[in-house]
């Protein structure tokens, strides 16, 4: 897999800080699991977090080390096994818990001609939405009025827009106000994972009236 479109370094930093809204963190984690180059950047960025963490003025703790609780715990071997297990499939490892290992087994819901989607439930939808979208060959990806940042990871097939062609592993990390109308590959179509910013930008009653348009 040759990845040519990477997320913004600012997004990687936010990810390394643990400060990304969950929908975006999911897209980032999936890309990172496929991209050695971003993993290297992330490793450098972890040092930033560590350096700032070390600079914090410690706050004394009032309770001692939880030795009793520790003794009640066995070493966590299960978790290690789970992590080492490799499942053959086409879903990035971080997403497997949410959607399984095979894109073909996702419970797709048709939302228009040649367009299917599957919403991945997140704890706090106000901080962003995460969905898988499948688009038939040659079809335009649905217009979804940019109301903020948007991040797309290609999982199968490809799409093209004015900024280039996006293939599996590629990420389109878009600011608000970016106009784009991607077209899915004429042969393979496209399956992608999309995070969009939550609705916090629309706080006025006026804006709420407009809101129904923003779903696919």
């Amino acid at each position: 897999m040759k990845i040519t479109h990477h997320p913004d370094a600012a997004s990687l930093m936010s990810c390394s800080a643990g400060s990304m809204p969950e929908a975006f963190a999911a897209v980032m984690a999936s890309h990172i699991s496929m991209c050695p180059s971003c993993r290297r950047d992330l490793a450098t960025m972890e040092h930033i977090g560590t350096a700032l963490f070390e600079k914090l003025v410690p706050v004394s703790v009032s309770r001692p080390a939880p030795v009793a609780a520790m003794r009640a715990l066995e070493a966590d071997v299960d978790e290690q096994d789970a992590r080492l297990a490799v499942i053959a499939g086409d879903v990035p490892q971080p997403l497997m818990a949410a959607i399984g290992a095979h894109l073909d087994k996702v419970p797709w819901k048709r939302v228009g001609p040649g367009v299917w989607q599957h919403q991945i439930a997140l704890n706090d939808p106000s901080r962003g939405e995460l969905r898988l979208v499948k688009v038939a060959p040659g079809q335009a990806l649905p217009e979804h009025g940019h109301r903020g940042n948007e991040m797309t990871l290609i999982l199968r097939g490809s799409y093209a827009d004015a900024s280039g062609t996006y293939k599996p592993g590629d990420v389109a990390d878009l600011d608000e106000d970016v106009e784009h109308q991607p077209i899915a590959d004429p042969v393979e179509g496209c399956i992608c994972l999309i995070a969009v910013q939550g609705r916090l930008r629309f706080k006025s009653a006026m804006a709420r009236l407009v809101q129904p348009f923003t779903g696919f």
């Binding site: 990810c15 969950e22 980032m28 984690a29 992330l42 963490f53 997140l122 704890n123």
Partner: peptide, 29 residues
């Protein structure tokens, strides 16, 4: 320190924000 910081970071996402942390510990992959 990096490792422990990462554990703290993930726990914070999980507990203070009640979200999944998604990005694994640095030794993950």
């Amino acid at each position: 320190t990096t490792w422990i910081f990462t554990i703290a970071r993930n726990l914070r996402i999980d507990r203070l924000r009640r979200e999944l942390s998604w990005v694994e510990l640095p030794d993950g992959h």
